[in-house]
Design a protein around this nucleic acid. Structure first.
Length: 591
DNA sequence: CCGATCACGTA
DNA sequence: AACGTACGTGATCGTA
């Protein structure tokens, strides 16, 4: 123990029985100082005598809660969560190989230690399946013999310790050491804290919505079956296609691998042809929302906290964004009326508290202005203009007051489409103009915003010559197929290359803001909690006494997290749930 | 039981 | 002829 506490650096893994570290069902600790000094400390193994968890945690508490030694691990957010369940706040989370591997190649979806050992050290190690089995017969960690578990986790720890300096050297070589140390690693405990905080959900309300939707769905189903003269499962694209394109003889459009497509765009095109089509579209929408949110959310409420605790994944999205799962709280509906009903179910956990939502306004266009230094774009943001109206004015060559609603709409589609590598075909499809008109429109756009065109061309060249593109903080994404002779593949690669620097830079900025704000809340001993992040939005749960304090500090910290050459603007809303929110403030940080 | 496919929600 | 980027989830369906 003295050796461990006195070390500068120590490998650490908290082995849990189940896959939800937040539950804190710790099976063992693994600690390693070097290749010869690795300890496996079992606390839960069936059949075999183990140490008492309580005693073990007490002995290690000082080590866990000290910033030194620095801890090296693989997926340290899980370690933090498992210990937090026992009231221990893990400190010194300095070196997570999972996070490092992600920075080194964000294209690999959730790299494994096995893959790292193989790729970096050319060494084969056992995967989890070898020890635990797979599928229905899989054992949990507590069911495995201690000796076998110790050998398995011991080897992983030795590999972890051996890999760390190799990955560090690679990070330095790529110029990503600072991004790793100052952004991604500090973010690890921030995400863990958000997950632990969770979000309260109004269960009685959701149950009521579920009943309403059930009734509506039954009615729609009946009306559809009346037309079909028999039972039909509207959720089955196969049955639906047979009904629409064979029984009703409606004109089939796009094909999928297995027949005619029945997706929303196809059905929208058939709406006028038969009254049943509208009913099908409505059924689809209600059924989707009921199944994915209204009925699924209550099942994910933790019985101890009465809240849903999503997982924020830091090592999945190739652009540097976070993703959310179990449940995915980053795709809660907002557009439709039923969707808004779902949003109303997200509430503060304590009566009287409020939800505060802060979102970056036009952050991607502002990032684009920053990266391109385009004089027109920069001028528009500097003046605080309506950016889409200004774009329309520039493209149509008219004064801004004369821009019509339709012209503004077209400009908006182009402004959003830019980041996706917009084509004349895509623009035509989204706006209803011909591809010829779309081509002219895009040409006019790039004449007005020539620096944007040069920037996008430059990205493609960089991708082609270097094989990767990067964000303002030098986060990299390697671009496959960018030199492919196959035009389809190459153009797809070009779109990916164009999208990443802007989307990824916005993600960089948001991550900086999250770190600052979490630090601030902690230092000021505030009770307000950061509970959600949705790409350009942060949501907080706020006691009334802290309301004014948060209204001051949240937008200010967000807007100044990473100063751009244009003002960064943050919209602030406050309300009793995630839907019914009122704008309270709009803050623009000077460029 | 699992994976592929289709469809669809968000930024 | 083509069908912008990034994600995660649910239902169905065919296979093991």
């Amino acid at each position: 123990m003295t050796a461990i506490a006195g070390a500068a650096v120590a490998g650490l893994q908290i082995v849990t029985v189940d896959e939800v570290p937040r539950h804190g069902r710790i099976a063992a600790l693994v600690v390693g100082l070097d290749q010869r000094q690795v300890w496996y400390v079992p606390v839960v193994h069936e059949q075999e005598a183990c140490l008492q968890l309580k005693d073990v945690l007490n002995r290690f508490k000082g080590f866990f809660e000290a910033a030194r030694p620095s801890k090296i691990g693989f997926n340290q957010k899980a370690d933090y969560l498992a210990l937090a369940a026992h009231g221990i706040q893990l400190q010194g989370i300095d070196w997570d190989l999972l996070v490092a591997a992600y920075l080194l190649n964000s294209g690999v979806r959730s790299p494994s230690l096995e893959a790292l050992a193989s790729d970096v050290m050319h060494r084969t190690i056992e995967g989890r399946e070898a020890l635990f089995g797979t599928g229905k017969t899989a054992m949990t960690c507590d069911q495995v013999e201690i000796a076998r578990a110790a050998a398995f986790f011991g080897e992983r720890m030795r590999v972890t310790l051996e890999l760390q300096p190799l990955l560090q050297a690679q990070l330095v070589r790529l110029g990503n050491a600072e991004l790793f140390r100052d952004l991604e690693m500090p973010l690890v405990p921030v995400l863990a804290e958000i997950e632990m905080a969770g979000v309260a959900v109004d269960l009685p309300y959701l149950q009521q919505v579920s009943r309403e939707l059930y009734d509506q769905l039954r009615r729609l189903d009946q009306e559809i079956e009346d037309v079909a003269h028999g039972p039909i499962n509207v959720n089955s694209p196969q049955q639906l296609a047979r009904f629409l394109f064979e029984d009703l003889n409606l004109p089939g459009g796009r094909k999928t691998k297995s027949g005619y497509s029945t997706d929303a765009t196809v059905l929208e095109g058939l709406r006028e042809q038969h009254p049943v089509v509208g009913k099908i579209l409505e059924y689809r929408q209600l059924s989707k929302l009921k199944g994915t949110y209204v009925d699924a959310l209550p099942l994910l409420v933790d019985s101890r906290t009465h809240r849903v605790h999503t997982s924020f994944n830091q090592t999945v999205a190739a652009t540097g964004r976070l993703s959310s799962s179990d449940p995915n709280l980053q795709n809660i509906p907002i557009r439709t009326e039923v969707g808004q009903k779902v949003r109303r179910a997200f509430i503060p956990g304590r009566t009287g508290d409020l939800l505060l939502s802060a979102d970056y306004s036009q952050i991607e266009l502002r990032v684009l202005a920053h990266m391109t230094d385009d004089p027109v774009l920069v001028d528009a943001f500097a003046r605080g203009e309506d950016i889409h109206a200004r774009t329309a004015a520039e493209v149509f060559g008219i004064p801004q007051p004369e821009v019509t609603a339709n012209q503004r709409r077209l400009a908006k589609v182009v402004n959003f489409g830019l980041f996706y590598g917009l084509s004349d075909f895509g623009l035509a499809r989204d706006t209803g103009m011909s591809t010829e008109e779309a081509r002219v429109f895009i040409d006019a756009y790039f004449r007005a915003y020539s620096r944007v065109r040069e920037f996008l061309e430059g990205i493609k060249i960089q991708a082609r010559e270097q094989g990767y593109v990067e964000t303002v903080l030098h986060r990299r994404r390697y671009i496959q197929d960018i030199r492919s002779p196959n035009r389809m593949l190459r153009q797809a690669a070009e779109r990916i290359a164009i999208n990443m620097p802007v989307q990824g830079s916005a993600a960089d900025i948001m991550k900086l803001a999250m770190i600052r704000l979490q630090r601030y809340l902690q230092e000021q001993h505030l009770e307000s909690r950061m509970i959600l992040t949705v790409h350009d939005e942060l949501v907080f749960e706020v006691p009334p006494a802290e309301r004014d304090h948060l209204i001051e500090v949240v937008p200010d910290q967000m807007a100044t997290a990473y100063p751009l050459t244009v003002p960064v603007q943050v919209d602030l809303k406050l309300g009793p749930n995630w839907q019914d929110m009122e704008r309270v403030r709009l803050v623009a940080a000077k460029a």
